[in-house]
Design a protein around this nucleic acid. Structure first.
Lengths: 145, 145
DNA sequence: CTCTCTGCAAAGCATTTGCACATTG
DNA sequence: CAATGTGCAAATGCTTTGCAGAGAG
């Protein structure tokens, strides 16, 4: 994640690039799909006094600017990640592992549907849920129980 | 929604088809994407003493059997609907209206991705978020700044 | 009679918010 | 100095759960 871009985006919205916000971005840059709680831990490694409230507020701002994407899979905490490239999600229903994937062609389909319905300014996301290779081997519960 | 199918599904899992459960299914059969709260109201029209806890428990069972689908868009209550046909969602980010749409071709894309990653027993969902026609006209909080 | 289900109320989490103080420009 | 950001803690909203009694097989 390029801090300059971030700064520009923030300033443009009259937000300031504080050390807390930079730390949140750094935490997200590290990798994957993090929960607010996990981000808090990471950020506290640098700034021990940060509060969860600040994490949420920061994530909300970053999302508004479009730098962060949020995913909520019912049932538990939302997961946040930096908006790098456009991608989709492959979630293992058993171990909850989450992987990014590309899905060519979906964008056009989504745009077409949205246009037909009069929607504008759209975003779209494809989520595939199933059993990953390793969970597929284990005894686990099958689809039809 | 066919009660016989439901009953079979429930029995097969050692669950009983009680009047509360039937009422929840009837509420879902009526239409759209309901929140637990809305389902509660509908069910209370027939069974005034039903509790929210029972609604949630019932929805959870129905989901486990595959008769109900749940959607959580971060931020607010989950929405439940009967699993009738395969479809996707078009959500207005402003008024939160939710509409079902067909999306031909997505299934193949999803299957292909899943196969490539070794996933089995998959399901997939495409969610398109944007501003619906009427909200697009009003002063939105998004878009042109 | 035994096992499952229900209502109620309390508990549990994730997330949001009010407020006084700290920080930034 | 004026405006924005932060920490803390309390509040909120959705969902889950323990328990004792009710209902089904």
């Amino acid at each position: 994640m390029d801090l300059k871009t971030v700064d520009a985006g923030l300033l443009q919205s009259r937000y300031r690039l504080t050390k807390q916000r930079a730390a949140v971005l750094r935490a997200l840059g590290d990798g994957g799909h993090l929960s607010a709680e996990t981000i808090l831990e990471k950020v506290r490694a640098e700034l021990p006094t940060v509060s969860l409230g600040t994490i949420y507020r920061t994530l909300d701002i970053l999302r508004a600017i479009g730098l962060v994407q949020v995913f909520s899979f019912g049932g538990s905490a939302a997961r946040y990640e930096a908006s790098l490239d456009k991608h989709h999600h492959l979630l293992c229903s058993t171990c909850r592992a989450l992987e990014n994937v590309q899905a060519d062609g979906v964008g056009e389909i989504a745009a077409q549907i949205a246009a037909a319905k009069g929607f504008s300014d759209i975003d779209y996301g494809l989520t595939i849920v199933g059993r990953c290779e390793s969970c597929g081997r284990k005894p686990g519960k099958n689809g039809a129980s």
